[in-house]
Computed example of a mutant assay.
Amino acid sequence: MEELRQKWKTLYAQELPAMAKAKDEKQNWPIHLDHCFARIIMDNAVGKDKPWTEVVKSPAIKHMSEQQLKDAIKLGESIADGSEDINPLNERSLKLRGKSGPGRKRKVIAQDDAADKKTKRSESSNISTYFLPSPALPKKEIPPDETLVTAQDLEIDVQLKRIADSKLTPFRKQILSMLCQIPRGRYSTYQAMSDYITNTSHKTCARAVGNAMRNNPFAPEVPCHRILAADGTLGGFGGHWGEEGKFADRKHELLKEEGISFDSRGKVKGPPFRSFSRTASNAGR
């Protein structure tokens, strides 16, 4: 089972995203993010007539049966070799989730092409590789603890251990540990995090929180993209700030994929997540 899990993880989190970003000619790729490949494959191979989340308990990689893993791997490999067209599979997945149909045509291919053009610029080496495109398939095997996987498919304890075992400062560990508590589809703010720390631990400020997130080495599993400015605007990402920032489009893309939307004024819809836990926030210390 562990061998199957690793094979599945490598397929959806490394190989397929790399092929999409390299525009491999085997497919007309509508998406390029790892969790999108997981969604499409699992909805079709595991969920079948419903979203996979209604069939398998999260984290999926831990709870999928041997047959479900084999079915997911088989479909993923068919996408990789071009024998299965990913586009109708994507449309079917979206339809199962109520995100497709008349009046809601998704221009995902055009959006993905536009995102690729914006990211094909030379970036500073001190920025996490999470913010950079993968130009080709990995040339060497990546150790399991460095494999890109979605936040939804990982247990919080796994990420907390990665943070705790790192050489980051205690404050940065505390901030990154708090990020692990924010559910997919929710967001929080720098101010909400600083308020919590000030009330339960020591005095700090939103700016200090933002600085602690710079160059997050554990993204996207530790989701710094879910943190916005106190006024509901985009905030920072990859060392840049606001809608004019170098990575603003990428942050919007990630938030949109998770169901977070903004109004015409650029303000996020819905209240911020504030239910931080003392146990988890101190776990990274």
Rank of each mutant, 00 (worst) to 15 (best):
Q6W: 09
T10Y: 09
L11M: 14
L11A: 15
A13D: 08
E15V: 15
K21C: 15
Q27R: 04
W29Y: 03
P30I: 14
L33I: 08
F37H: 14
F37R: 12
R39N: 09
M42Q: 11
K48V: 15
K48P: 11
P51C: 03
W52E: 04
T53K: 12
A60N: 00
A60I: 01
I61G: 07
K62M: 14
S65V: 03
Q68L: 03
Q68V: 00
A72I: 01
L75I: 13
E77P: 00
I79H: 00
A80K: 12
D81K: 08
D81Q: 05
D81V: 02
S83W: 06
S83L: 04
I86T: 02
N87P: 00
P88N: 08
L89N: 01
R92C: 07
L94P: 03
L94H: 09
L96I: 10
G103I: 08
R106P: 00
I109P: 00
A110G: 12
A110Y: 06
A114V: 15
A115Q: 13
K120M: 03
S122Q: 14
I127P: 02
T129A: 09
F131A: 03
L137N: 08
L137I: 15
L137D: 07
P138V: 04
P143E: 08
P144T: 04
D145F: 14
A151Y: 02
Q152Y: 09
L154D: 09
K161F: 10
A164W: 04
L168D: 08
L168E: 11
R172V: 10
R172I: 10
L179M: 11
C180S: 11
G185D: 06
Y187V: 07
M193V: 13
N199F: 03
H202A: 12
C205H: 04
A208W: 01
P220Y: 12
L228Y: 08
D231L: 08
L234R: 01
G235M: 01
G236I: 00
G238I: 00
H240G: 01
G245M: 05
R250Q: 14
D263E: 10
G266T: 08
G266I: 05
K267W: 06
K267P: 02
V268E: 06
V268Y: 03
G270F: 10
G270Q: 13
A280C: 05
S281M: 15
